[in-house]
Simulated assay, not measured.
Amino acid sequence: MTTEIPTTMRAYLHSAYGPPTELKPTTIPTPNPPAKAVLIRVHSLSLNASDIEFLTGSPAYTRIMGGITKPKPNFVLGSDIAGVVVKVGEGVTDFKVGDEVMGDILEWFGGFAEYVIAPVDWLIKKPEWMSWQEASAIPQAAVVALQGIRKGGVKEGSKVLINGAGGGAGSFAIQFAKLAGAHVAAVDSGLKGDVMRELGADVVVDYKMEDFAASTSVQYDYILDFVASSGRSLSAVKSVLTPAGQYVLVGGPVAKILESAVVAPLLNMFGSKKAGMLLHVKSKADMEEICGMRKEAKIKIVVEKVYKFEDLVEAVSVVAEGRNRGKIVVHVAAST
């Protein structure tokens, strides 16, 4: 099977760190896959909080990869992709031209484009029965959520609070916690309440109306925090944990990361309550497991809206402002 590959492609670049309006459509050379990698024609991509972090250059550690004072030339964002292999690099044996694949290419990036290169170790074959939109929604958000629920040792009867439960990763985390038999309190904007309830949340908390850490009348075995609990100290969060409870942060500002990396271990030494960070690891096995859950209708994939590639800036704005209920997907190329 041969596929004609154009020498140039459409992509979105940003020459300065800032809001989504910094993303500008342009034309750049189509990349060539190195060894152990493939070139993919992108059909769908989904957006994540990590895209916003690298777009704005905040937290500061994102600039180590993206460029210290300004983005590197031709640095294309986007990490959750689904598409068709159109060329394979040297040494590739697991995939061939024409294979439909999906994966998380965070660290390599490049998803905000018509074509992208990806290491084969980060990809799985897209199930034939799965839509492009659902395939692109899974790789990063669902894997982070699954690993987060596992880290907490969530089991039958656990009382779990998920902060940022109405977004991409949060919408998966609610479902994974419920599958484990937990009682779930979901925290996010009240505008996302209906979605969180539909996914199984037992209690919905509107963060604009109530601070979940302000009262110790309800305590949790596990708190999974996707939005870094801005303004809350570790001590405040730990006050609503059960005696052997655990708090886990997923990403966030450098100050919060340092607090979790430096302060949390010290606090952990002086009590049974624990706090720490989730270190997301790419996992083909986890992606395949999640696809299996979807095939068996054990989980739903909440895609609030599918945007055209020409409207990518608008799509990114929705995620940047935290307005997305579940995942936001961008349609790039038509199926062939």
Rank of each mutant, 00 (worst) to 15 (best):
T3V: 15
A11D: 00
H14V: 05
Y17Q: 10
Y17E: 07
P20W: 07
P31K: 13
P33R: 05
A35R: 14
L39P: 07
S44H: 15
T56D: 08
Y61E: 11
R63L: 07
M65H: 03
N74S: 15
G78D: 05
G83L: 03
V85G: 03
E90A: 14
G98F: 12
M102A: 09
D104T: 05
F109D: 07
I117F: 09
I117W: 07
K125V: 02
S131H: 03
W132T: 02
W132R: 03
A135P: 01
A135V: 01
A141W: 09
V143Q: 03
G148Y: 01
I149V: 14
K151F: 09
G168K: 01
G170R: 07
S171V: 12
F176Y: 04
G181A: 10
L191E: 15
D194V: 05
A201L: 06
D202K: 05
D206K: 12
F212H: 12
Y220K: 02
K238T: 13
V248A: 07
V254T: 12
A255M: 00
S260L: 05
P265E: 11
F270Q: 15
G271H: 05
K273L: 10
G276H: 01
M277C: 09
L278M: 06
D286W: 00
E289G: 02
V303C: 13
D311E: 14
S335F: 11
